[in-house]
Amino acid sequence: MTDCGCEKAKAELEEYLHNELCREDAADVREHLASCADCSSEHLVGRTLTEVMQRACKESAPEDLRDMVLLKLRAIQSAH
């Protein structure tokens, strides 16, 4: 692997945060983050924001609603 540089690391950071890069590109970004304080800091901010948003968006449907939806889906599936 070769160090990908700040420009490439920052351009691919969003995809890296969401595990959307191919193995080689992810390894390049990971290697760069290990040796670049600036990009590593930006990665930490992105990772923190991503985690906060994921926690904030975790909503569970009320159990009654889930039961109704599952019953409806089963009824539709059995009709086909």
Results as ranks from 00 to 15, higher is better:
S40Y: 14
C4P: 00
A27F: 03
D28N: 15
A79I: 03
R30P: 02
L71I: 03
M1F: 13
Y16V: 01
A75R: 06
E12W: 12
H80R: 11
D64Y: 08
C4I: 02
S41G: 06
H18W: 13
A27N: 12
D25V: 06
R30A: 08
A61P: 14
C4V: 03
N19M: 09
A37T: 12
I76A: 10
P62R: 01
T48Y: 05
V45W: 13
R74E: 10
A27H: 05
Y16R: 01
E14V: 11
C39H: 02
L73T: 01
S35D: 09
S60Q: 07
S60D: 10
R30K: 14
H32A: 03
E14C: 05
D38C: 05
N19I: 05
A75Y: 12
E42I: 08
A37R: 12
L49H: 09
A37Q: 13
L17M: 03
E15V: 07
A75T: 13
S35K: 15
H18N: 02
A11G: 08
V29D: 02
L44H: 15
T2N: 10
R23Y: 14
C39E: 01
S35P: 06
L65V: 10
A61V: 07
L49W: 12
C22H: 13
V29L: 07
V29E: 00
R74W: 00
A26I: 11
Q77W: 08
S41I: 09
A11L: 14
R66D: 08
E7P: 03
R30T: 05
D3K: 05
R30I: 00
M1I: 10
I76G: 02
R47E: 13
A75I: 07
E14G: 07
D67K: 04
L49C: 05
H32Y: 06
L44A: 15
L73F: 06
R30G: 10
D25T: 13
S60M: 11
K72S: 09
C4G: 01
V52C: 06
M1C: 06
R66I: 12
L44C: 09
